[in-house]
């Protein structure tokens, strides 16, 4: 007797497999939602933005499916060990992807407002931030689906870069608003979108940690270092 990759009960493999398939589909959808949202911002394309807003329902449907499927596997198969981790992390990862897609849809909504207003310079940096986040999301989903704990840890490091770019973008936007108060309306939308993107990076980071847990059964012990200082930027003006 020995151990194999497959369960003796083949339908168990099929049921577990459905979770990964659904996550792959959901992740792919969320990625393209994000990519389109960034594209809509860059090319001031309100139609594309509208598609993103509409497309969020599909991501939500995936989330609902994964929830049902996970509950079903828990109830009917009573999974343990790595099987249990597969089910529990699928539930949580689906939740993270759902939030990321929400944030992308919200960015698309704001882009339609921005299109009514004159363009502002910091948009270029915002697009750069968006692309960084998109690459991170792609990579973490790949790491999750290929059960690659090492790669997840490497991807996790990248959130720092997103936080750094976000902090400097925050200052950049602030500077523009102070120099030209007419840009305050578009710039505050930009600021919210930047925050959305920074949050997407945090959700991606959560997925790296879930990947690590799913594969190794251990939590990422080391504490993340937060150097996002935007929350204190401008504080000197308030005093």
């Amino acid at each position: 007797m020995g151990i194999g990759e497959q369960h003796i009960v083949k339908s168990f493999d099929i049921e577990l497999g459905k979770l990964d398939e659904a996550l792959a589909r959901m992740g792919g959808l969320a990625e393209s939602q994000m990519a389109s949202a960034i594209q809509a911002l860059e090319s001031r394309d309100s139609d594309l933005a509208a598609q993103v807003i509409e497309g969020d329902a599909k991501v939500d449907a995936c989330d609902a499916f994964i929830n049902e499927q996970a509950v079903k596997v828990l109830a009917l198969r009573a999974p343990v060990a790595d099987d249990l981790r597969t089910v529990v992390t699928a539930l949580k990862v689906a939740g993270e992807i759902e939030r990321m897609a929400d944030l992308a849809a919200n960015a698309a909504k704001r882009s339609r407002v921005l299109n009514q207003l004159p363009p502002v310079e910091p948009m270029r940096s915002l697009i750069r931030l968006g692309r960084l986040a998109l690459v991170m999301v792609k990579d973490v989903l790949d790491a999750y689906l290929s059960h690659d704990a090492e790669r997840a840890l490497t991807v996790r490091e990248r959130d720092q870069e997103i936080d750094n770019v976000y902090s400097s973008l925050f200052r950049e936007i602030l500077t523009y608003m102070m120099e030209d108060p007419r840009t305050i309306t578009p710039c505050s939308h930009l600021m919210f979108i930047a925050k959305n993107i920074e949050r997407i990076g945090d959700h991606a980071t959560n997925i790296t940690e879930m990947t690590y847990f799913r594969v190794t059964g251990k939590t990422v012990a080391e504490q993340r270092i937060k150097t996002d200082t935007s929350s204190s930027a401008g504080a000197e003006d308030l005093t």
């Binding site: 151990i3 168990f12 060990a81």
Partner: peptide, 19 residues
């Protein structure tokens, strides 16, 4: 043992991948 067994044989047995 049931969340993160150390030995692959244990994991194979409790998850039903043992044959």
């Amino acid at each position: 043992i049931f969340t993160n067994p150390a030995n692959p044989l244990t994991q194979g047995y409790i998850t039903g991948r043992f044959g």
